[in-house]
């Protein structure tokens, strides 16, 4: 099986977010990491490869810094990758990113399965996977919480629905799946894995290399205006005393003052 995993590098949410010129975050203060949801997707791909054989290919778009997390996926066990490196692609919206990934997957050729995280931790659009499947005109499932590849022709997945329901669906391959977190336990790279990762093949491609003409604003359907920090205010009452005193005072307040229990 040829499995492509789309990986995005995102800011660590524990970083300090400082907005510059109402336009972007100050990257000097940000630690970058692999999007959590994508880590589950990489692990899912590696498990399928272990069962069925084949290769796992990473596709990631962004500036030079994303190489760190492509190599991270290599260290986990992915075989090779494509780094889409073009500021004009980065300047575009989800439509442009999905188109660029689509072109990269075409370059790879004959992908049996494409996995993405269900969303990125930073933007949380939940768009790329769906848009990609539309461009590729192949089946798609979002919010995947379980997957079983029976053979090289079809796949059975569980999707998360509203109301705590799970939907079991079957689809033929190739297909695109958007992976929900918690599907598996992503492995830590081993030391030999990290050593090998440095030598694995990583192709760098621009929009021109991919044959993508509509990039940046021209290929986008939305236009970014500004970024800003929201304000929030709240005051708290601290209940003093040791655990026993505080617990008694708390229950008393909830019962007699707030009347919520």
């Amino acid at each position: 099986m040829k499995i492509v995993v789309c990986v995005k590098q995102v800011p660590d949410m524990e970083s300090k977010f400082v907005v510059v010129d109402n336009k972007k975050i100050d990257e000097a203060q940000i630690a970058f990491k692999m999007n959590d949801f994508d880590e589950f997707a990489v692990e899912a791909a590696l498990q399928i490869k272990e069962k069925m054989g084949g290769e796992v290919i990473i596709v990631s778009a962004g500036p030079e810094r994303v190489v760190k997390d492509i190599r991270q996926a290599f260290a986990m066990g992915a075989d090779w990758g494509i780094h889409i490196k073009d500021p004009e692609i980065d300047a575009g919206d989800s439509t442009v990113i999905a188109s660029a990934i689509h072109k990269a997957i075409e370059k790879i050729g004959d992908a049996d399965l494409v996995l993405t995280g269900v969303m990125s931790e930073d933007n949380q659009f939940t768009l790329t996977g769906v848009m990609l499947s539309h461009l590729m005109d192949i089946p798609h499932g979002t919010n995947i919480v379980k997957l079983e590849v029976a053979d090289e022709k079809s796949i059975t997945v569980n999707r998360e629905l509203e109301g705590g329901l799970n939907e079991v669906i079957e689809m033929s391959l190739p297909a695109v799946l958007s992976i929900q977190s918690g599907l598996n336990q992503p492995r830590y790279p081993t030391l030999p894995g990290i050593m090998k990762a440095k030598k694995k093949r990583l192709d760098v491609m621009t929009a021109a290399d991919l044959g993508l003409s509509e990039v940046g604003a021209a290929g986008s359907k939305t236009e970014f205006i500004k970024m800003f920090v929201p304000v929030s205010e709240h005051k708290a009452e601290i209940i003093e005393g040791d655990a026993k005193t505080a617990a008694a005072a708390l229950v008393n307040k909830l019962k007699n003052e707030a009347k919520v229990i």
Partner: peptide, 10 residues
């Protein structure tokens, strides 16, 4: 975006 630390306008 970014866990609500920031807002973006489009």
């Amino acid at each position: 975006v970014s866990s609500g630390y920031l807002f973006e306008k489009f």
